[in-house]
Design a protein around this nucleic acid. Structure first.
Lengths: 205, 205
DNA sequence: AACTTATCAGTGGTCAGACCACCACTTTAA
DNA sequence: TTAAAGTGGTGGTCTGACCACTGATAAGTT
């Protein structure tokens, strides 16, 4: 008898909820039965039902509204990704690894943004730079660029890496460097844009 | 006052557990405090602690042994993958994003591995392919390649993405494709290697 | 002394029930 | 007609109880 052979109640509830959703063809925004109802129907206690629901919630599959009910939501892995990341990144990573991954993400961001960004967007960005503190220029620009690229998952990963990075180092360059970068992006000049980007990661100014 | 502003107890517990693991530098196999202890320390009820623990368990971060305690484990998706599958399949956007990110990571892996891998390594890999089930060839090869590249952070991110991906699709190509890929890597032929890689993502065989 | 068995404390698993906060809706009062 | 108070249902949280399982200790047996 293996120790993992016993199925816990909350896991059974999990499966039943899944089946319920499938059978009733529920989709985004639809409401699930109340916790008490589920407990009753499935012959489990409300506690067990809640354990299952909280787990699904953390996965990002449902959304809970106090006083209203539990609703299906559009699934995005990002909630769990964030939590997983904090565990995965638990051990202090070397500065090089963080920088490496960061570079990959930002390179790809620049490559991909070329297809989506307009000249006006870039001009707007350059204008806004005036109001941004120099320490936050890098983060500001890439936050904008990533959101233009539109891949939320990519953005989220970058954002996490960015935050972890700032614990050990910070990219601070003069705004003129970023204006150059943006200009190359405007001209769809990938090689030069990437070249400028690479310079940003070095310490010397 | 937005409705999402209130943090639930179980979410706070989640965060505290994460911090506890960080502070005490716990790693795989280490035991967490008992549910009652956690409840006491964090000033929460055991129910709330359990909601948090069950959620983490579903994610695959911890393992629970009846009568013994709760233990950290290396991340392995638990029920989460099957559970997510039902939902992710209906979210084309998420699927696209996952594939996109995955492609980025695997491209970079191939580019980077060229500097670290020897001809013998590749020959070994090709030999081992015989024993691998066709369904797992892709995962197997990249697991090896990533470990050769040496950036643990990159590896872990890929591993996470890979697992999430498998909830919605799976890359299955004949082994000969992978032999081609490895051959190009052997010859340090980046363009052709990336070209083969790109083919892998398409459905047609 | 060595070995088996019984006991026990600690742990997770589950449940029932209580109370609160919140929301949508209805009823009531101005 | 409109504003206020009430109402029922919902999630959020806590308490305390009991069970099943585990590992170690104590007691008993050979």
């Amino acid at each position: 008898m293996t120790n993992s052979s016993k199925i816990k109640v909350y896991q059974e509830v999990l499966e039943q909820i899944r089946l319920f959703i499938e059978e009733h063809e529920l989709s985004e925004g639809d409401r699930l039965p109340s916790e008490r109802e589920l407990a009753d129907q499935l012959g489990a206690s409300r506690s067990s039902v809640r354990e299952a629901l909280r787990a699904i919630e953390l996965l990002g599959l449902i959304e809970t509204k106090h006083g209203e009910g539990t609703f299906l939501r559009t699934y995005r892995p990002y909630h769990s990704v964030e939590l997983l990341a904090t565990f995965v990144l638990r051990q202090p990573k070397t500065k090089e690894e963080l920088l490496d991954v960061r570079q990959i993400l930002e390179q790809q961001c620049i490559i991909r943004v070329m297809d989506h960004i307009s000249s006006e967007d870039i001009d707007d960005l350059i204008e806004q730079l005036v109001t941004i503190d120099e320490q936050e220029v890098h983060e500001f620009i890439f936050k904008q660029l990533f959101s233009i690229v539109g891949n939320e998952l990519l953005s989220k990963i970058w954002y996490l890496i960015n935050n972890f990075s700032q614990a050990s180092y910070r990219i601070i360059k003069s705004k003129s460097e970023y204006v150059r970068l943006l200009s190359f992006i405007k001209n769809k000049d990938i090689p030069n844009a990437l070249s400028v980007l690479e310079h940003l990661y070095f310490d010397h100014d």
